[in-house]
């Protein structure tokens, strides 16, 4: 795979002391992911073509509404960047008048990016989140 084992070990130790759940190293030889699970760190090596062809899942707004990254009662985001997601997890909200519609993760994966502005009114189909799916066949 070509990644320096010493560097990986160092990064792993460093990662263990943080609340970062995903670290991705991309190089010409491929991609290495360090994924933090409940019971420790897991390495995931991807071949270059797999990494390149891998599609980011974009989550679109199902309604017209006000986009919220956190439940109105909560002080923290429903899913912060790098957050490990299960399919169906609530990752954001659309507010329509007094009602809230949950935006859910379409797949197992990681929160890669928030594409809309918290508090902004978004139309139907507006991209809200980019999710990095877990590779098929790789069970967490």
């Amino acid at each position: 795979m070509g990644a320096d084992p010493t560097l990986v070990a160092q990064l792993s130790r460093w990662l263990a002391d943080t609340d970062i759940t995903l670290l991705e190293l991309r190089g010409p030889a491929g991609t290495l992911r360090l994924v933090r699970e409940k019971d420790g760190l897991r390495e995931e090596a991807l071949a270059p073509d797999a990494a390149a062809s891998e599609a980011t899942e974009t989550v679109l707004a199902p309604f017209l509404g006000v986009f919220l990254v956190r439940h109105p009662l909560r002080l923290r985001e429903a899913a912060s960047l790098g957050h490990r997601l299960n399919k169906g997890d609530v990752i954001g909200f659309l507010r329509v008048g007094p009602t809230l519609v949950a935006v859910r993760s379409p797949c197992d994966g990681f929160m890669q990016d928030v594409l809309a502005t918290d508090g902004a009114t978004v139309g139907f189909g507006t991209p809200l989140f980019a999710i990095l799916p877990l590779l098929p066949g790789v069970s967490p």
């Binding site: 109105p72 009662l73 909200f93 507010r95 007094p98 009602t99 809230l100 519609v101 949950a102």
Partner: peptide
């Protein structure tokens, strides 16, 4: 299957 914003916030 949906939610409400608590009226205290509204």
């Amino acid at each position: 299957g949906i939610g409400l914003v608590p009226p205290s916030l509204d």
